[in-house]
Every structure is written in structure tokens, then in C-alpha cells.
């Protein structure tokens, strides 16, 4: 039950893009075409999940025991940067086809604040769902949260890319062309997502 609530809340209610504003730069950057949006979502999903597990363990077994929580920001970003590099190298060797699909997005992901944002949220924020007492997430819940959050990222990204493909063919006033009209579209989408609030 708990897992299910985390899942629903992370995908719809607290959608990482439309409610938490994390990872907006790549969202605006690569959402021109549905195919690139899917690729980026896949890469983000992969990296967020992996990074959350690694940083969670790092925090739990290295930083907290030694009272070094103030090094969270600096150690997390370095771990994420190293991780992304490693994923790139490993993917290239093991699965060239997957690398072809996700490879070009990987270098962009280090500076995607969604990854660091989720990693920090998981170890610093308390969660309370469905009337349960507030508590820190355990590893299992953290993984569910990470997967669900990145699915939410993918959902918003692909929906938006679909809309944007249609926008491209429309006659938009000159000053609105490009990003402004895209931002206004996201605004309306975010309004629709507000309707999910309160269901968990």
C-alpha cells in the first residue's frame, strides 16, 4: 500500500517537472521531437534510479556514521558525475544498441538537476502518505520513489513533446515563437496536473 502511494504521488501529484520544477532545462531543450524525448526519458530514468541507490548507500553508511552530512552536496554531485561516465563506458561495451539510443543524452544528465534533486530529497525529506506517520524512506521505498519520479518525468516529457510536434506546424505570432509558446503550453499542462493534488 505504502509503495503504491509513493508511486502514484511521485508520478502525478508531485510530478517532478510540473510541480517540483526539477530538470526543466533538458525538458525544454530536447522536447522538440517525440523520439528524442523518449530517449532522454529513458536515460534519465536509468541514471536517477542508479544514482539514488548509490547516494542513499553513501549517505547511510559513510556520511551519517561519521557526522559528515554537510558534505552531501559535494559528494553527491561527484558520485553522480562519475556514475554517468561509468554508465556511458559500460553501456558502450555491453549493449551498443542501447548506447546508440541513450548515449548522446548521458553527458547532459550530470547537470540535470532532477538527478541531484531526487538524491538529496530522498535522504533529507520525511514522507507521510495515506495518514501514516512521517518517516524517512528506507532503501526499498527510495528505489520506488526514484523509479516513479523518473516515470513521471518521462510521462510529462513525452506528453509535452507530442504537443510540441503539433505546435511546430501552427501559425504562432512571431514574438511567441519557440520557447514562449512552449512555456505557456507547459503552464496549461501544469494546471491540468493540479487536478491530481489531494488524491493521496
Amino acid at each position: 500500500m505504502e509503495y503504491f502511494l509513493i508511486f502514484v504521488s511521485a508520478i502525478f501529484v508531485n510530478n517532478i517537472l510540473l510541480a517540483q520544477f526539477l530538470g526543466i532545462c533538458p525538458f525544454l531543450g530536447v522536447s522538440n521531437k517525440l523520439s528524442t524525448a523518449t530517449g532522454m526519458s529513458g536515460a534519465v530514468c536509468f541514471v536517477i534510479t542508479l544514482a539514488t541507490v548509490v547516494t542513499y548507500l553513501l549517505n547511510q553508511y559513510l556520511l551519517v556514521p561519521f557526522g559528515l552530512e554537510f558534505l552531501q552536496t559535494i559528494s553527491f554531485i561527484l558520485v553522480i558525475a562519475a556514475l554517468v561516465q561509468m554508465v556511458e563506458i559500460v553501456l558502450k561495451k555491453i549493449s551498443p544498441s542501447l548506447y546508440q539510443a541513450l548515449g548522446i543524452f548521458l553527458p547532459l544528465i550530470t547537470t540535470n538537476c532532477a538527478v541531484l534533486g531526487v538524491a538529496i530529497t530522498v535522504v533529507t525529506k520525511e514522507f507521510a502518505l495515506g495518514g501514516a506517520a512521517p518517516h524517512m524512506l528506507n532503501l526499498g521505498e527510495a528505489v520506488v520513489y526514484a523509479v516513479a519520479t523518473s516515470l513521471g518525468y518521462g510521462l510529462a516529457m513525452c506528453l509535452f513533446a507530442g504537443l510540441r510536434e503539433h505546435l511546430a506546424g501552427n501559425d504562432v505570432p512571431k514574438a511567441f515563437k519557440g520557447l514562449p509558446i512552449a512555456l505557456i503550453t507547459v503552464g496549461i499542462m501544469a494546471m491540468a496536473f493540479l487536478g491530481f493534488s489531494g488524491i493521496v
Partner: peptide, 9 residues
């Protein structure tokens, strides 16, 4: 949230 996108746009 929606207001942020609209105003920036």
C-alpha cells in the same frame, strides 16, 4: 506551479 510557466512565457 502553472503560474510560473505562464508568467515566464
Amino acid at each position: 506551479a502553472p503560474g510560473a510557466f505562464l508568467v515566464l512565457g
